[in-house]
Design a protein around this nucleic acid. Sequence first.
DNA 1: GACCGGATTATG
DNA 2: ATAATCCGGTCA
Length: 191
Amino acid sequence: MTPLTRSFFARDAVVLARALVGTFVVVRGEEGVQVARITETEAYRGPTDLACHARVGLTKRTRTMFGPAGHAYVILIYGMYDCFNVVGGAKERGHAVLVRAVEPVTEVVGSTSGPGRLTRALGITRADNDADLTSAKSRVFIAPRTRRPRITITPRVGVAYAGEWALRPWRFSDADSTHVSRPSPKSIGLG
DNA sequence: GACCGGATTATG
DNA sequence: ATAATCCGGTCA
């Protein structure tokens, strides 16, 4: 599989999030290559988006987000789960897309529906933070989709603290895939 | 240098 | 419903 090029990623996170549904995550582990198709994403649109980590500006943690598009932004949440994001944005603006679910193409052990689950199943960790997803030499990269999925659009999950930003319809999922995450009870009833 | 609270999940 | 579990961001 051939990785997508930089220009694919260097776009507004909302546009990129939608375009990433149906693309393939390729992970080159020690026991071979794992491939999974992205079925659910969320856009995080830079410093002005109060749900986005970039809202605090350029820090040690967010440095990757403000770097070049097409790199991986992997962070720890709740002390125990890694989240896999893809850096977007035309001008290193702190845009990123969270990958919330994938469906296995090759054999993958464990559930891949849910941001914390897919990283565990695919073996993606913070060690992969800042990896260049446009290079076939990277341990992790992303390859083009082979068909255009039907997309379901909903508000983002788990960002109720972000006020009106939590209502933005910036979550994109494959309408025909069963491999999507279940919204946490906390996020239900937002409006 | 202490404290707070998550882009979640598993279990009761 | 709630515990598990770490660290970045914030304030002192």
